[in-house]
């Protein structure tokens, strides 16, 4: 029987290998293009941007194709923000830009020059957890934990969005104050998928934070 540690090493080696293949397939240099005029970029394929990430200014020179998600993970080594589907469907990559939650996989790093980005690393630490992080722990709001940074980043903003009066699909009166109900939370969290199915406990965690803040 293979000891767990050896399996872990093998798995990591395999992942690094396949990541390298994925990188070379996904990021073909311009010179490898077909050569026709319309397939040649009209200018530089890299851009320098300055982002404020978790309060710290960070200057980056990136290939224009690098998403905000990959800039955070691969260039700034902030791996708390997760890559799930990479197509905006799962919400694992959710972080906030200028105070609003977005899918960082569907945004280019070069679009965010001067923007303020907050990732899960900026929300709290194991020693000093944000109330939403503490509530997820207390309510077992996860199993494998992969979607959790995105869930927490989204959940904190869901409460703010309801309090700011931003209507949702399930909001009744569009011109009245919006109550924080299970239906409102569920609807607003629909862009964050949890394959372990921890939804009931995620809902409990968010409800608890909303009630504690009230």
């Amino acid at each position: 029987m293979t000891p767990p540690i050896e399996f872990e090493i093998r798995r990591r080696t395999l992942l690094a290998g396949s990541a390298a293949i994925a990188m070379s397939a996904g990021l073909r240099p311009a010179s490898a293009q077909d050569g026709a005029a319309a397939s040649t970029p009209a200018g530089d394929s890299t851009t320098t941007v300055t982002l404020t990430v978790n309060g710290e200014p960070r200057e980056l020179t990136v290939d224009n194709r690098v998403t905000l998600l990959d800039a955070l993970r691969e260039h700034l080594e902030l791996t708390g923000t997760k890559k799930g589907c990479d197509h905006g469907q799962c919400g694992a990559c959710t972080c906030t830009v200028n105070g609003e939650r977005i899918n960082s996989c569907l945004s280019l790093a070069v679009m965010h020059d001067g923007d303020e980005v907050e990732t899960i690393e900026g929300i709290g630490t194991p020693e000093q957890m944000d109330p939403m992080q503490a509530a997820f722990v207390e309510n077992d709001g996860f199993q494998c934990g992969y979607c959790t940074p995105g869930q927490i980043s989204s959940a904190r903003k869901v409460i703010e969005e309801i309090r700011a009066g931003i209507p949702s699909h399930v909001t009744g009166d569009l011109n009245a104050e919006i109550a924080i109900t299970d239906a409102e939370i569920r609807e607003r969290m629909s862009g964050n998928i949890c394959r372990c199915g921890a939804y009931a406990n995620i809902l409990a965690a968010i409800t608890q934070v909303a009630e504690d803040q009230a």
């Binding site: 996904g26 990021l27 073909r28 240099p29 311009a30 293009q33 397939s39 970029p41 009209a42 200018g43 530089d44 394929s45 851009t47 290939d63 224009n64 194709r65 280019l108 070069v110």
Partner: peptide
């Protein structure tokens, strides 16, 4: 993704 240039 294919390479592209970018401008504002």
């Amino acid at each position: 993704m294919r390479a592209f240039s970018y401008e504002k």
